[in-house]
Design a protein around this nucleic acid. Structure first.
Lengths: 110, 110
DNA sequence: AATCTTTATCGTAATATTGCAATATGAAAA
DNA sequence: TTTTCATATTGCAATATTACGATAAAGATT
């Protein structure tokens, strides 16, 4: 039906999935990598970096912001975007945890 | 248009996005967490764990397999699924790298 | 062989996502 | 104040995703 049954999962599972989903598009990965590549965070310029129309980039930025992956500070008539470390840490810890868990039960199967 | 412009991004960006997209649904997060929670990998049982119909679970398993996040070994008339460490490692390293990068440029902005 | 069990596939309805042109907003510059 | 610049919002078309009933496929059990 195109509608996700969030009610049958835990809040933690739903939140994790939302974070992952926000990064589940190459444009949004490219935006995060661009924000990382420049010194500190960037005001403007993001649209020129991607071969996508301005409204499309704006929409991707909005999704990243909603997911908590980037923050935007208004700075004059431009907006200064940067990565929110908290979200990245959550992901780093999540995958680190899975990795550790897998290490423990290594060679028990497959 | 509903179609992602993969051709304007790097292969690495597209691949990372595909991995994240595969985990961008709570059912698929729940599947991965269930596979982790049981000792070694599990043959069958996955359908009973989730409050979703069998074809729906099968479809989610297929997506996780296509993305390389899980592997399935045929074992009699059941299938033994387990997590593919390679994909998890890729993501662990990816977010670890971003985290390190952010640490370096701390307090330069925002 | 007939049946059971497990997983996959097909078809389809409901909804979500992607992308962009047109337009709006709001601050700075002239 | 008019213009300019940067970003957001709206509306829409094309496509993708989610979910499931019906059914198929294939090995196991009787």
């Amino acid at each position: 039906m195109g509608i996700t049954k969030t009610e049958i999962f835990t809040q933690q599972q739903n939140e994790t999935a939302l974070l992952m989903k926000a990064l589940g598009h190459p444009a949004r990965i490219a935006i995060v990598e661009y924000l990382l590549s420049v010194n500190a965070c960037i005001c403007g310029d993001i649209v020129n970096e991607l071969a996508l129309a301005q409204p499309t980039v704006s929409q991707h930025l909005k999704e990243l912001k909603n997911a908590g992956i980037i923050k935007g500070n208004i700075s004059g008539n431009a907006i200064c975007y940067c990565i929110d470390e908290t979200a990245i840490d959550t992901l780093r810890v999540y995958f680190g945890g899975i990795s550790d868990n897998l290490e423990k039960k290594k060679k028990m199967c497959c």
